[in-house]
Design a protein around this nucleic acid. Structure first.
Lengths: 193, 193
DNA sequence: CGCGGGTTTGATGATGCTCAAGCCCGGTGG
DNA sequence: CCACCGGGCTTGAGCATCATCAAACCCGCG
């Protein structure tokens, strides 16, 4: 259960974890299961948990006034979920996060997470996590403002082909900032050639 | 010169800096001046510096195959610039960063920055910086995929009115993911009402 | 067998882009 | 002091891309 998290931390930090470190991490992170469609976070709440995905897939999205969902993030094993803004500032979130596949998570709270400050590898890994998240978001911004729908899809095929296996097309479409119809047509054209 | 940076750190960390801390920070961060239009980073280089803007304004952008520029970030006093990806992974960057107004910066390198690890307030502030950056980017993603050009402009007026003063309209337009003509028409319509 | 979620297909139209011209204004040099 | 120039902004006409709406299809599952 915790092995994936240990691996993640050791890999990102480039440092091994001691037995005591592992002990502490097991106390700080609490397992949680989520059934498909179950919410991890709902608009209006304060995001109390930050979680590491051991198994499963989740989506983070906003809902507009017409009831349409807009995917901000799709996440699978070894990714982190939470709304950093709500989590750190304790403000109500504007996002929803729910499970698309049944999930096993390791969750922690802001208070518990402070205990990690004494584990250099964990501090380092969390820092990397934030940076990676920022980098990923920056790439999405730059593709959203600079590329056509077709190019955005091509980029996803290139960089995250797994998503295509794990999530239905209409979610992918929303994630790419287009409608399911447009995505469907793009895929037709791409495979036709 | 360094005061703005000290303030920034103390404010974000919620901790005071000791005299020694200040001493170290002054050694770690090197002043640099940039004239309008001068590059801080060019596509293809590795990003060697991370910088705090004491005074001035910069823009970060990509250039597509048709030669069009796409603004990824606009930054002014109290903001940080660098390509986190290139800076941390030492890979060549795909971005350009240059000065739109004459700038005074405080720069540091990856190696020098490690010295900050001994200053809790600095560690904390840098962490906040990353988180804030990620949050800001996430908001841009969510508005880019979920909102119309008009709504995106309205949101900017709401959240970053200063930008409208400091940057020419065609840069704002690019930052918002639309053409200068579209932005011009939106502003006409908005002021007409 | 029929139902529901997901995907495809088609027709229509709005949004926003492209290209082209003209305007405004501050700066420079004759 | 004026003429000219260039950068930025506006305006307009036509067009491409993509969204919308609606219908049909596909397929796994109860």
């Amino acid at each position: 259960m915790y092995d994936k998290l240990f691996n993640y931390i050791e890999q990102y930090a480039g440092l091994p974890l001691t037995e005591t470190d592992r002990q502490i991490i097991q106390e700080v992170f609490v397992p949680m299961k989520l059934r498909k469609k179950q919410y991890f976070l709902q608009e209006g709440e304060v995001c109390k948990y930050m979680a590491f995905i051991v198994k499963g897939a989740t989506r983070q999205y906003t809902v507009d006034d017409k009831g349409a969902e807009h995917m901000v993030q799709l996440a699978i094993e070894n990714w982190w979920i939470s709304d950093r803004e709500s989590f750190t500032m304790l403000t109500p979130t504007i996002y929803n996060i729910d499970a698309w596949e049944d999930c096993e998570l390791l969750t922690t709270t802001k208070a518990d997470a402070t205990r990690l400050a004494h584990i250099p590898a964990a501090v380092q890994a969390l820092r990397e996590m934030d940076i990676n998240h920022a980098i990923a978001m920056q790439k999405r911004v730059s593709s959203a403002i600079a590329m056509t729908a077709e190019q955005r899809y091509a980029q996803l095929v290139e960089s995250n082909p797994t998503f295509l296996q794990r999530f239905p097309q209409h979610m992918i479409a929303s994630y790419l900032g287009m409608t399911k119809e447009t995505l469907s047509r793009i895929r037709m054209k791409a495979s036709g050639k």
